[in-house]
């Protein structure tokens, strides 16, 4: 995940407003660092057909959780891409500044969520078993 992806909106806006936009300081959400990149979504369970029914059950739960983590990560990536692509300085009024400020504050929630998703991912990869 990078901060510069999917900036179609920005491209259009820059063309649309041209010189007017350059009169103002940029009001663009910045996301410090980048979202975690991890995977592959593989399990430590190599034999799902082990002696006990718990193997199949755990494997199914791991798949469910990993799918949720993967989709959540994608949602965060899309969100960061969208937020960093908008330049609020193009529109007059304090409303655009308020929106920018609120979205900028969201980046800390995104960062926390990203961290928690990673924790969930790690926890789901440990399927018990004596080391």
């Amino acid at each position: 995940m990078t901060q510069n992806t999917a900036s179609t909106t920005t491209g259009t806006s820059a063309q649309a407003t041209g010189a007017a936009a350059s009169c103002f300081a940029t009001l663009r959400v910045s996301y410090g660092g980048s979202l975690r990149s991890y995977g592959p979504y593989t399990t430590t369970l190599t034999d799902a057909s082990g002696g006990c029914c718990c193997h199949m059950s755990v494997l199914k739960d791991q798949q469910t959780i990993n799918e949720a983590v993967r989709i959540s990560q994608k949602a965060l990536e899309d969100l960061v891409a969208l937020l960093t692509s908008i330049d609020f300085s193009q529109w007059q009024g304090s409303a655009s500044e308020q929106c920018y400020a609120r979205l900028q504050r969201l980046t800390s929630v995104i960062s926390e969520t990203d961290g928690e998703l990673y924790n969930t991912y790690v926890m789901s990869m440990n399927a018990g078993g004596t080391p």
């Binding site: 718990c54 928690e116 998703l117 926890m123 018990g128 004596t130």
Partner: peptide, 27 residues
């Protein structure tokens, strides 16, 4: 668990699920 069994840290994961729900609801 013993080597012939498998499990997850379900109680801790339940807490994680709740955290994710709250975070995504907030976003």
């Amino acid at each position: 668990t013993p080597p012939d069994h498998a499990t997850l840290a379900y109680d801790a994961l339940d807490g994680q699920f709740l955290t994710h729900m709250q975070e995504f609801a907030s976003l």
